[in-house]
Design a protein around this nucleic acid. Sequence first.
DNA 1: TACCTATTCAATAAATCAATTGAATACTGA
DNA 2: TCAGTATTCAATTGATTTATTGAATAGGTA
Lengths: 217, 217
Amino acid sequence: MNKREFKDRVYGELAAVTKAMANPHRLEIIDLLAQGPFSVEQIAGYTGLSVANASQHLQTLRKARLVSVVRNGNFILYSLSDDDVFRTWVSLRELGTAFHAEIEKLVQNFREGTKAIDAQTMISLLEKDEVILIDVRPEEEYRRGHIHRALSMPVDRLPGELNNLPRDRQIVAYCRGPFCVYADEAVRLLLENGYQAVRLEEGYREWVLAGYPAQTA
Amino acid sequence: MNKREFKDRVYGELAAVTKAMANPHRLEIIDLLAQGPFSVEQIAGYTGLSVANASQHLQTLRKARLVSVVRNGNFILYSLSDDDVFRTWVSLRELGTAFHAEIEKLVQNFREGTKAIDAQTMISLLEKDEVILIDVRPEEEYRRGHIHRALSMPVDRLPGELNNLPRDRQIVAYCRGPFCVYADEAVRLLLENGYQAVRLEEGYREWVLAGYPAQTA
DNA sequence: TACCTATTCAATAAATCAATTGAATACTGA
DNA sequence: TCAGTATTCAATTGATTTATTGAATAGGTA
């Protein structure tokens, strides 16, 4: 094997892996699977794809060995094959966000009228009991793992649970990550109903990746 | 803007950046530009592409803001727009290598018969003057930056410089990175001529990224 | 065994990407 | 100004990717 063949093979293999991530739907799927295993139906629901189309994209990720598969009766559960997949996604996300101000602008415009606090601030406020932390992801994800001392409060249940929340403390809401909108919805609802509410900048997986305390329930 | 539009826009932008990296030639170009600025002609030469094809690929990288451009008379010099581009490439490289054993096997087969040492080992041997370190990249790259105490010995000049190298010490050769073959060629030539020679596992950019001492000349 | 559910497969059409080609553009120096 | 050099542009052709569709497959339950 000569030098050119060697390089074409090596870069070709790595380009194939990169190509598997080079599609908006598949990036969204990777971002979702960072929260744990999901069935094809669930993935289709959260991403707005048909089941058949979601399955096709998942086969692409599978062939690139970016996801792994477990069958559970009628259901097939997909999850990321390793934390490194998430880390590479984070690297791409940060690279894109740093050089494409449109992305940051998109996110800021979408979040207009709401505020965020970072992990360090949240930790110290929580220790002083100055805030309540709510996890507004679906319950299933909360049970799989959540930030230490967070209360489960799925966003679609929040309207009926408002009276169970204190008005004298700030409420911090978090969800899946920087592009997840559950926390935005929750903060908006809380603000409209006279609560003090902010979003946590980090999502659950970023929290875990940074080594902050988490627990399962 | 509703939730679905927001997500489609954000993941779409990030997929566009990822797509710019999802081609073997463009990955090779990124790997090369990690060594510094190069003209289109040079890039075409090192990658085996036509100038027109190299230019097209560079326009793709430019539109994704992964490279930056400086004109120097008749020449246009391309370089990586930031270290983060290199870091993301490293992340992709490691992800691909970890899950696709074919890649590691390719590299090992190509390097059959040669040995490597890592940075830590090299540092301690160099301090004890037990090894000679040679940079076998083209001189231009050596001058832009090289490992502290390395001698410039471009691989195409090595045959004529053999007699200037000591036979009583091991020679450590390095080049651009894990997929660069200059160091392999040098080690093979040295071994065939009765020298003790090994390859340094890290290339120049990995060395710098790890914070080890480098210098310019 | 039959029916139901979840998922995958394979084919198709449309969209996108990649390599090539030759003309156009920008710069340099006599 | 002209000729030479380096690069880009735009068009074309062929290759690859994506979404859709309906049939096929795998598992569960009565």
